[in-house]
Design a protein around this nucleic acid. Structure first.
Lengths: 328, 328
DNA sequence: CATCCTCATCGAAGCGCTTCGACAAGACAC
DNA sequence: GTGTCTTGTCGAAGCGCTTCGATGAGGATG
């Protein structure tokens, strides 16, 4: 009943077959008669057998483990990462894989280590930047991988990301439907723009793409006082503004405060929509509609793509996930 | 230079020694002459050798991997988990260990699986509850482990947690020092209290322990409208209240709003302190002081304790981490 | 100068699994 | 009844590493 120390030989002995037969029953790689298979499975259950992961990976050259490398860095929005991690683990388990956690500060050498030690079969790289050091190493290692985000040169890589253009567009649509003709997007902090120009650009593009609106995009710093100042300036220069999209998680609370100070009644004569995770939009007053990064879907997609690659199947080079608008 | 496929035999050949000698150089388990060691290390570097993790774990009965099982559940505060995860990975790497990510919904059978497959050497169980199903399995498996949180019966287990009593006390102290004589603690949602009575009790106890204050503790639901109602009721029944501690992350924004509605000027004639992560306290206006769960310290402590256990060393059964007050 | 240590190194066994080739035993054709 | 396929099973080799016992070369000792 206890699992510790039960080997395939024990199972074979109990079922009265050879060890290799047990292996074939478990992997299904050769046909085995139903009677034998039943006996083997019964023995497996009785003994609580689980194959030794190391032995298996040594013999089969498959570790049954995926690595997930995620960023730990200022300005990262942690809850989304966590949802992502949870989604990835759940999906990986459906494919009988486990997930090894790595952080970006291990850098390229971390990648080299797990690759060379055959510790993992594949890799998911989160929060990939336009110029990402790890990408070159990744190419060289030839370890199957999926990236979340797009590096400058995504040639030959498999990338998955939120469709930020669509996200921008969804926000503009939402505001337009509320009757706003004069709208603005309060963007991410400069630092984020610098790191990931592509993604900020795409949101801008989507936001400005709806015809018939006076729309503009402003970057916005993270510090509370500067958020307030930015909002005040915006309202001063655009007195007819009635709709605002905020794509800057830490700023949302302060934006709301500044709007209240300026006498705007959000949800009535003024409309705000957030691009960001649910918590941020829920924890302000009034609660706001939001376009969220569907972390779980992203994670699932990434893991599935990776599994397909491990199985030698084709996957699209680039996959964009539709944003979802949640009304509150 | 590429690492893939380089074996200990390759290193041995290049250094002109036996494979076992390479192994001893790398592990330090037998004395090797400096000259030989140098030659071996040079070969290792030249070839980019990393031992095959599976082979190593098979031969040495040590996987070099720690499992971290964390909860995915409503009401969990995700950012803290993430900080925790990051801290654990960082500390684990310092001990040359990797971290396998598991989620609580794998339950006891997940523990059995990783234990029996010798995939991990030890286990960190996060967010342990008073009545936790996994604890019994854990005892039976005999896998070295460290728990974050305290189950009802912690006999024979190694547990680490924030010192919640101290956290409650720190809040009361902060408010008292600001001249508040009449204070209250707005607690967590009922659900959390039900699951983890111990921890809520301890905060209460600490908060009420400071003599000379009129203090009370109220549970508080998560929904915005109910938060507002709770605050209103509180202010109505206790007109002289000038200090509030909030131990409920999603509620903080709404509490601030309700206080503003009631004409309280936070930071001036009224004081608020948060028990929770930095982000929550930073993203409201005005920013609030907070007592944070020192996730990183907790994670480090947990990993260190686990490593000591793996090395057969003694660790205290129970460790309480001091809370930290951050002023803003 | 023979004896006994110590130190550095080697060779071989074995960890638990997968996989390849071999091989009986039927099933089928002729 | 001989020959040819399948089908189900077995035995053995080998994955890359650690570890144990053995060995040989010097030093120290008497």
């Amino acid at each position: 009943m206890a699992g510790r120390g039960v080997t395939i030989a024990d199972v074979a002995a109990r079922a009265g077959v050879a060890a290799s037969t047990v292996s074939y029953v478990l992997s299904g790689k050769r046909s085995i008669s139903p009677e034998t298979a039943d006996r083997v499975m019964a023995a497996v259950a009785d003994l609580g057998y689980h194959p030794h992961a190391g032995a298996r990976s040594l013999a089969s050259r498959r570790a049954g483990v995926l690595a997930m490398m995620f960023p730990i860095r200022d300005g990262m929005h942690l809850p989304v990462l966590m949802q992502f991690a949870a989604g990835a683990v759940a999906e990986a388990r459906r494919h009988d894989q486990d997930v090894l956690l790595m952080t970006a500060d291990e850098g390229p050498s971390g990648l080299a280590r797990v690759a060379a030690s055959a510790m993992v079969d594949g890799l998911i790289l989160m929060d990939v930047e336009v110029r990402d050091q790890r990408v070159e190493t990744l190419r060289r290692l030839g370890l199957p991988s999926v990236l979340i985000g797009f590096p400058a040169d995504s040639e030959g890589l498999t990338c998955v990301d939120l469709d930020f253009t669509a996200a921008g567009r969804v926000c503009a649509d939402y505001l337009a439907e509320r009757g706003c003709g004069d709208i603005a997007l309060l963007g991410a902090a400069e630092a984020v723009y610098e790191r990931r120009t592509g993604f900020a650009e795409r949101v801008r593009e989507g936001f400005l793409s709806r015809p018939g609106l006076r729309a503009e995009v402003r970057p916005c710093p993270n510090y509370p006082t500067e958020v307030q100042r930015t909002v005040k300036e915006l309202l001063a220069t655009r007195p007819d503004l009635t709709g605002l999209a905020v794509h800057n998680e830490p700023a949302v609370g302060h934006v709301m405060h500044a709007l209240a100070d300026a006498g705007k009644r959000v949800g009535e004569d003024f409309h705000v929509v957030v691009i960001g995770p649910d918590e941020v939009a829920e924890r302000v007053h009034p609660q706001l509609p939001s376009v969220l990064v569907p972390a779980e879907t992203l994670a699932q997609t990434a893991v599935r793509h990776l599994m397909r690659k491990l199985d030698g199947l084709d996957v699209p080079d680039s996959t964009l996930i539709e944003p979802q608008l949640t009304l509150r």
